[in-house]
Amino acid sequence: MELFKIIKLEFNFFVNRKEFLYVFTVSLLLMIVAFFVDLYNLFQEDIMNIPPANQLWVGFDSRIGDLFYMFLLPLLASLAYADTYYLNNRLGVYKYILTRCHKKNYVLAKGIVVAFSGFIVIFVPLLINQLLYFIIAPLNSSKNILGWPAYMFIETKNMIFANLFLNSPYLYNILYMVLAGIVGSLAALTSYAISFITNKSRLIIVATPLVIYLVSSFVSALLGRANYCLVYYLQGFTTISGLNATYFFVVLIMSFILSISIIIFKNMIAKDELY
């Protein structure tokens, strides 16, 4: 019962938090800008020359989408709510909270809301972007995003879920929105876990998931193994060969286990001055 009360309280803090509103606005603005760029390019174009809405979606094959996925996704997710434990600790607020509830419940409730915050700041703007394209683009079209003639079908050989794309292209996009949301959620959870390890700087807590994400992708690309860059698993359409779904899900599960392990170890096993 206490856990639900704290979750509700944390959720209220999250929704009213200034940083969340800023991050959500930035994320949403990017999606709207991407939409307006395409709107400008396709203005007064013959309907036969417009690709379908699912292929215009920012998470499918878009330059702004590329930048969003490559540089912003983990940072936006971490900025929304993941540093609040650090701030509570730094400002001494946690003492007042922990004298009124169990630390276990407090940490768990915060963890749930942090994970939710990372998911929501990524998933909702992506979904809104897709909905916007329904206004200007047809649901189905023989024209594709690759600029190929109508008689040539879009290349699917590098897609992990090619069958889903061919049968239900919009469900395929929703799947990719959820995957991006999960990665955002894990980035926020990683930040949250790091806030238990160090309380030196807010920047370290917020930026660490982005640094891990960028460095691992850069090293993979440098070694000629671009198929191990996480960013290419988050977009609906890439031309990278050798993408492996098992590798992607193992990375997600491992980062989840690692974050949870840090949180459990630092709270349940290592005792502080209050517990």
């Binding site: 330059r63 590329d66 930048l67 490559m70 992708s217 850069f218 690309a221 440098l222 671009a226 860059c229 960013v231 290419y232 890439t238 031309t239 990278i240």
Partner: peptide, 10 residues
Amino acid sequence: RGQNHDLTYV
């Protein structure tokens, strides 16, 4: 002219 279809680091 050409450019890589995907955004690359290298």
